[in-house]
Structures are given as structure tokens and as C-alpha cells.
């Protein structure tokens, strides 16, 4: 009984959302550190990108896990939102949500939807051309192409603006999502306050770091 009940239960869904969220935050951190190298050294960025783009473990194990994680997190998010909305068929005539909770925590579906829209654009911009380059056209290896491809994308003020706006919403999503993930997996103890502080730092440093990278390339190339 226990195993099937676990899969169906509200707590299991909550934990699954938290674990997929934590995994995506780990990915986000490594993506941030790799992209940040592009600000300091084109060569370093090229060599790391080349490694990530051609290492079989990254390409055929970690990348599929990441894609599954992203899809799972979004689908589960929408499923839970639908279920949660149906748990209150008649809304309040007057509701003062700001009196007891943050905007970020109440609107994860909005910030998450913007991040999803951004990811679709981001995949179209970088991931799809990369897959076509390597696996459809089977173009020759070029270890120095990555920096130029990155810099070229951020010449467009529209793309740079859209990316920056999306990162603001990502910041709000992480503002609640980071500490919420730990609460969901049952972590609430004397370290929770420090962890929450670290989470707020993460929610500021990573998205605003990405905005800095986008603006840096926009104004420098």
C-alpha cells in the first residue's frame, strides 16, 4: 500500500517538485559559472564549452536528465496549479494575500511561466543550432566558435532586453523556490534561517549575474 500511496500523495508531488527544483538550481549555478568565464576570458569559455559540448557523459547522460528534469518540473507545476485552483471553486470577494505572504510565493506559476517561455526562446537560440551543428550537419569540430556565437546573440537589444526581463522573474522564482525546496523535503531546523539567507543571495546573484553577462556582451561587442 505504502509505495502506491506514496506516488499518489500530495506530499510525494511536493517532494518531487522540490527535488527537481534543487537539481535545476544546481544546473543553473554551473551554467552561471561557465557563462561568467566569457566575461573574463574568451579562451577559457571556449575550452569549457567545448568540453561540455563534446563530453559523452555530459551530452548523453546529464543532458537528457536535465531535459527530463525541466519538463517534469514544468508539467508538475501546471498540474499542481490546476489542482490547487480547483480546491477553491468560489474565490473570496476580498482577499488580502499581501498581509501574510510574499508576492513571489503566491505567484510561482507566473514567474515559472515566464521562465518557461524564456527557456523555449533560449533553446531555439542556442540549443537547437548546437544540435543541428553537431548531429545533423555533422560540422567539423571548432573549439573557438563558442565565444563568438555567444557574443553575436547579445548584439540584439530586443534579445538582451527579453533575457534580462526573464532573469528578473527567475530571481523572484528562486526567491521563494530555494528555501521552499528544503522545507518540502523536510529540512526545517536551526540552520533554516541561514539557508534562507543563502537562498535570497542565490536568487539575487545568479539571475542578476546572468543579466550582467548579457549586458556586458551587448555593450562590448
Amino acid at each position: 500500500m505504502a509505495k502506491s500511496a506514496l506516488l499518489k500523495s500530495s506530499i510525494a508531488k511536493k517532494v518531487a517538485m522540490a527535488l527537481s527544483g534543487l537539481f535545476l538550481m544546481l544546473f543553473l549555478a554551473q551554467h552561471f559559472f561557465i557563462n561568467m568565464t566569457s566575461v573574463f576570458s574568451a579562451d577559457t569559455f571556449n575550452s569549457i564549452s567545448h568540453f561540455m559540448g563534446n563530453n559523452p557523459l555530459v551530452q548523453f547522460v546529464i543532458q537528457p536528465i536535465l531535459i527530463v528534469g525541466v519538463i517534469f518540473h514544468f508539467i508538475m507545476g501546471f498540474v499542481l496549479e490546476y489542482k490547487n485552483n480547483s480546491a477553491r471553486p468560489i474565490s473570496y470577494a476580498k482577499n488580502n494575500g499581501a498581509a501574510n505572504s510574499s508576492w513571489a510565493s503566491r505567484n510561482m506559476i507566473i514567474s515559472g511561466s515566464v521562465v518557461l517561455a524564456f527557456l523555449l526562446v533560449h533553446f531555439y537560440d542556442f540549443w537547437v543550432p548546437e544540435m543541428v551543428y553537431k548531429y545533423v550537419d555533422v560540422s567539423p569540430l571548432n573549439e573557438t566558435r563558442y565565444f563568438h556565437e555567444l557574443a553575436e546573440k547579445f548584439e540584439s537589444p530586443i534579445r538582451t532586453g527579453l533575457y534580462s526581463l526573464s532573469f528578473l522573474l527567475l530571481s523572484l522564482h528562486l526567491w521563494h523556490g530555494f528555501s521552499s525546496s528544503f522545507q518540502s523535503v523536510g529540512f526545517n531546523n536551526k540552520y533554516s534561517k541561514s539557508l534562507k539567507g543563502f537562498g535570497y543571495g542565490f536568487a539575487i546573484v545568479i539571475p542578476f549575474g546572468f543579466i550582467f553577462i548579457a549586458l556586458f556582451h551587448h555593450f562590448n561587442h
Binding site: S10, I11, K13, K14, V15, L80, K83, N84, S86, A87, R88, G97, A99, N100, S101, S102, S105, R106, M108, H176, S179, S180, Q183, S184, V185, G186, F187, N188
Partner: peptide, 29 residues
Amino acid sequence: GFGNCTNTGACEVECPKGISLENIARMNR
């Protein structure tokens, strides 16, 4: 038919007895 907790913390703030969110984490564990 209750909904799923998304850790907004509204319940803890509005609870007349100040029941803490620590209890939810404990129940999850």
C-alpha cells in the same frame, strides 16, 4: 480534496495559535 502546500507561509501567519511551519517539515519527514 484539500490543495497542495506550496510553502507560502500564509497559514502560519494567520493561525490564531501560531502553529509553526516546522510541523509541516516534520510531517513531510
